[in-house]
Design a binder for these strands. Structure first.
Lengths: 133, 133
DNA sequence: ATGCAAATGCAAATCATTTGCATCTAAAAA
DNA sequence: TTTTTAGATGCAAATGATTTGCATTTGCAT
């Protein structure tokens, strides 16, 4: 395993689950998905692993929360954002991001060094518009 | 009090504290700020009031969290974003937002109707840069 | 193979937030 | 103004996500 981490079964399983996921997963969701696999793994381990992965920048927590639980995604070093439907919570990825220029302006204005940004868009998806939900 | 709410001392105090604040406040910060004022008020009341205010759109929760506590700001119907220092959590308001054009593009691309967006920038503030914390 | 630092399981602790319930109070009705 | 009552509050206990202490296990460097 990269970044000076021991390669353990739990960590590989968690990475695998996150890799296959098509949406951000909570610690508990990861936990249950792994129960369905071969070897059980403790919920504390999931939390501890996710924290290590966060520190190593292997995973990220996007802005949206599922209730008050944090969700995690693999950091694929692609930069993108999510668009979330307020009605049905459909979540789609937006693959472009025009904010480099904006960040430069803010850096000049504030003297901060900007490291990252999080953006999320909320609206109504086409399906819900049709169904007037 | 507007929006069909009873005008109570707690609610007026909470509104006042939020109005005077120059940054998002957690429920507990609001609670302590009010202890310093004349009349004490219960922490549950702060939480309950904030929830009512949220539903009435009188306050909003910006994206950033102080640790894992939610922060609240008065909804002033101004649109702006926050810049947060990763080290000392200093939080400053950015008063301009260039994303209308971007939203239009995303609407065309996805057929979503976009209602709002949340953006947050993270970096290191000038003070922490100097102190190399 | 051996030793050790790091990882894990388990149970208990933590901490923000919520809730049940008895009491109180703003404001509508009389 | 007094009465009425739905909604607001205080208090203590419950909840639920996340963290932590500690004993045990396991990668992996020697």
């Amino acid at each position: 395993m990269s970044k000076g981490l021991k390669q353990t079964k739990s960590r590989l399983l968690i990475l695998d689950v996150l890799d296959k996921a098509d949406k951000p997963l909570t610690a508990e969701e990861i936990y249950w998905l792994i129960q369905n696999e071969e070897d059980p793994i403790n919920l504390s381990t999931v939390y501890r692993t996710l924290e290590v992965f966060l520190n190593k920048n292997i995973v990220q927590i996007p802005l949206m929360k599922d209730g008050n639980k944090a969700s995690y995604i693999l950091n694929r070093d692609e930069h993108h954002h999510y668009l979330v439907c307020d009605k049905c919570h459909t979540m789609i990825k937006i693959d472009f991001c025009p904010f480099d220029e904006f960040e430069k302006q803010v850096e000049q204005l504030t003297s901060f060094t900007i490291l990252k940004h999080k953006l999320e868009l909320f609206g109504i998806c086409p399906k819900c518009q049709r169904e007037r939900k």
